[in-house]
């Protein structure tokens, strides 16, 4: 649905400053009907990247294809036409304060030259969809943040777009409202088959609704893939710093002090076992323990759900000789579980 190829964006120097490279070597493919998340800290270039999709930001070089149309090759009038099929919602909603809820949602249709009677029949179902039918004659100043974003969503959907761009749409909302808005977006994605591209600095948003994710840093995409894979096996340190707080792959500090990186007499190896998919629910640990007569002391464990698939980590101390521990590791690997030796536990009374 959306293909960005070798995208670069450089902002010209201001005064005596140097030019700023906002986007570098961006290659991205977003499939039809996907919810694609782009995460990064502020200044990572995610907002610029999102804006190149509807060409609010013109890339310096590279190709932007949306629904098989090369956006960078369009004339001003053709681009305006193409933008009718790309809706956009914003962090600060960007509603017209002078217009009622109804008239805000009607704006894109007015701009497209739709007759008044048709606008009315088009807007009303949208207000129902976002649950704001009774607020139709209210002004944005009379609405809560969540309601304003619902108006923003209805407005973005008015021209029946194929793509919805979401620019930090939940960042100005409280956690409860954020969840409601995210569910609304997921619902729209399912019911209308709409492709959604969202940018956020909150990993919880990615975890909640995205199918795929790209992580950005310094204008580059440092990692991308299905959300489950990125959460289960983050490879870049920045990705890990995003994922760790929600996945909690770490171990408690009190236990961390007892870990030695090298084997020591009397120290038992500590393993981190990662369960993904259906493996998370099968009783592998007890089976291994029984089979190898190996006691496993559980230090820390967590099971989570990402995109509806269970995902768990377990940190265990293996109380046994090195051969049985090695056998356990290879058995775990045979069962397609992730195993990692974190270190060796020095006994507490040492």
């Amino acid at each position: 649905m959306i293909t960005l190829t070798n995208l670069q964006k450089t902002f010209p120097a201001r005064g005596s400053g140097v030019p700023v490279q906002a986007l570098a070597d961006i290659d991205l493919t977003i499939g039809r009907g996907e919810i694609f998340g782009i995460i990064g800290r502020s200044g990572a270039g995610k907002s610029t990247l999102l804006r190149t999709i509807n060409l609010l930001e013109k890339p310096t070089t590279g190709s932007v294809r949306v629904d098989d149309v090369e956006m960078t090759a369009l004339s001003a009038a053709e681009l305006r036409q193409a933008r009718h099929s790309i809706g956009m919602i914003f962090q600060h909603f960007n509603l017209l304060s002078s217009r009622t809820v109804f008239d805000n949602v009607a704006l894109p249709l007015e701009l497209a030259g739709m007759p008044k009677a048709e606008i009315k029949t088009a807007v009303e179902p949208l207000l129902d969809l976002v649950g704001l039918a009774e607020k139709r004659d209210r002004y944005p100043a009379e609405l809560s943040g969540g309601q304003k974003q619902r108006v923003g969503i209805a407005r973005a959907l008015a021209s029946k777009p194929k793509v919805l761009l979401s620019d930090e749409a939940t960042s100005a909302l409280d956690p409860e409202t954020t969840t409601q808005i995210l569910h609304l977006l997921a619902d729209i994605n399912r019911r209308l088959g709409l492709t959604i591209v969202l940018i956020t600095h909150e990993i919880a948003v990615i975890k909640e609704i995205c199918h795929k994710v790209a992580v950005m840093e310094g204008g580059r995409i440092i990692e991308q893939g299905p959300v489950f894979d990125i959460f289960a096996h983050p490879s870049h340190p920045t990705t890990r710093s995003f994922v760790d707080p929600v996945i909690n792959r770490g171990i408690p500090d009190s236990l961390k002090d007892r870990l030695s990186p090298t084997p020591q007499p009397g120290a038992n190896p500590v393993l981190r076992i990662t369960f993904t998919g259906e493996k998370a629910t099968s009783p592998v640990i007890s089976a291994i323990s029984r089979k190898l007569n190996l006691d496993l002391n559980i230090w820390h464990g967590q099971i989570d759900e990402i995109q509806g698939a269970p995902f768990g980590t377990l940190v265990v101390e293996a109380l046994g000789d090195s051969t049985s521990v090695e056998a356990a590791v290879s058995l775990l690997k045979v069962n397609h579980l992730g195993v990692e030796v974190l270190g060796h536990a020095v006994p507490a009374n040492h």
Binding site: R80, R83, M88, N94, L107, P108, L111, L165
Partner: peptide, 25 residues
Amino acid sequence: RGLIEAAQAMGATPFQIVRKVLLPE
């Protein structure tokens, strides 16, 4: 400025932005 950006994203012409967004706001 966000309102101008929103209108541009909707495919508004500059004249429409003046008439439908800037003057009323």
